Computed example of a mutant assay.
Amino acid sequence: MFKKYKVLKWGLLFITAIIILVVSFGFWFKGLIPPPNTNVVNTLVKDLPYISENNIPHRGKILAVVTSTNTMGNSGKSTGYELTELSRAYYTFVANGFEVDVASPQGGKPPVVIDDEDMGPFDYAFLNDSVAQHKTSNTIPINEVVAADYQAIFFVGGKGAMFDFPNNKAIQVIIKNYYETNKVIGAVCHGPAALVNVTLDNGRPLLENKKVSGFTNKEELLLIKEAKSIFPFLLQDEIINKGANFNEGHMYLEKVSHDKNLITGQNPWSTWFLAESMIKQLGYTPKYRVITDEENAVTVLSTFHINGKKKAKKIIEKLIITENKPVNITLIAKHSIVAVMKGELGNFFDLLELTSFTEKCESRQKK
């Protein structure tokens, strides 16, 4: 009896200690992440020099296409187009002299996904931009688009694209005609779903032997375990099935593939570079843009995965201390959580260390 009591006592003490450690870690981890900057919510276009200053003369028009689907199949999960993937590309095109129209399979006001944690100044400016909001509230039905009016087309991601992009005949016709006349085609994240069923005049799939990026199986399945039963296909699998050379980067980090006039990106973090790659393919040098704190964090994380923790620390120090450039701590912290979800405990602790190191560098810089 006494032994059982002793075992129970030590068991309860052990569990209590674990709970205390977990709670303490939670408070410590939360303390590393800065509170949201509420001032950014009111950002206007005039507050962004990239868009409002040194305006470039009109160069033409680009069409952005978003999904009309608001539910992932029969799952009941809500979806739509990803705001950040539209807003950042939209302003890149506008800043470089292009007018942007927005279309969707059904026209009208499509569903949108807004993730507060990913929102930055350009995204809030988009929400506060009456012109941009009019265009997204009154999208052009894709079968009414006059394709000749545009120099390029850009397919915005969002999981809804998996359902209404692949089999849309109007989308297929525009893509085929653009590709065969050397107009620029861009697609990011789930946006490349628009490409999978396009057949060229020679009878071959558009994607055959093309270097292509898109949302990967690993990225999809980590967040939605039942993705294979929800979506009509996994995007990476279908791109490969069509004969493409799938170009996969690190999870949730920038990766863009550029194959002649076809430019594709793996995920939302690829949007800036993809849009600027489209500008280059159109024959122009992209306008100078101050790199965002999120992009700097992506550089840190990419360095970590390729060259290890020590090199990543050097990049953090160089960016923050030497160059006085911001690094998004929250994104680095998120990747430590991704490491846990993947069962990579070593990477988890290393990324926690990088998160803490970034915070320390920022504190040094402020002094």
Rank of each mutant, 00 (worst) to 15 (best):
H190S: 02
N96C: 07
K169G: 10
V41L: 14
A103H: 02
I337Y: 11
I224P: 00
G97S: 08
K309N: 14
K311V: 14
S130A: 15
L221Q: 09
F14G: 13
H335C: 15
I240N: 07
A103E: 03
T181A: 14
A64G: 12
I320A: 04
I316Q: 03
S68W: 06
N138M: 09
I329P: 00
N182H: 13
T43E: 04
G249Y: 01
D201V: 14
P141E: 04
V131R: 12
I315L: 08
A161S: 10
S137R: 14
S104C: 12
M251K: 11
I18Q: 12
F304Q: 02
A297R: 04
V173Y: 09
K169E: 13
K135W: 05
P268R: 04
T199N: 09
N307T: 00
E208V: 09
I320T: 04
G157T: 05
A275F: 00
T355Q: 03
F126M: 00
I240Q: 11
C189K: 01
Q266I: 02
K30H: 11
L221H: 07
M119A: 05
N167T: 13
A17H: 08
W272S: 04
P192T: 00
K325D: 04
E85V: 03
N197A: 07
A244D: 03
A333T: 06
L282Y: 05
V113F: 10
G73Y: 10
T303M: 06
A125M: 05
K310V: 11
P36M: 15
F2G: 07
V145P: 04
S302Q: 14
I321E: 06
V45S: 07
N96S: 09
V66L: 08
M1D: 13
I15Y: 09
G186A: 07
D350I: 10
E85P: 01
P57C: 09
I291N: 11
G191R: 02
F93R: 06
V113H: 08
N37L: 13
V94Y: 04
N37V: 12
E180Q: 15
K210Q: 14
N247M: 12
I315E: 06
N138W: 10
P105Q: 07
K9T: 14
E53Y: 09
A103M: 05
S270H: 03
I175T: 02
S356E: 11
V131P: 08
F349D: 05
I263L: 02
H58Q: 14
E99G: 12
N168T: 08
N209F: 10
H134T: 15
F231L: 09
V340G: 04
T38H: 15
S213P: 01
I140D: 01
I332C: 02
C361I: 07
K311F: 11
F14H: 10
E362T: 08
K176Q: 15
E317S: 12
V184D: 02
I315K: 03
T303W: 01
I15G: 11
I230M: 04
V65D: 03
K342Q: 15
T292Y: 01
D123F: 04
N42K: 12
L207H: 01
Y284G: 05
K325R: 12
V131D: 14
F98R: 01
I56L: 11
G31N: 10
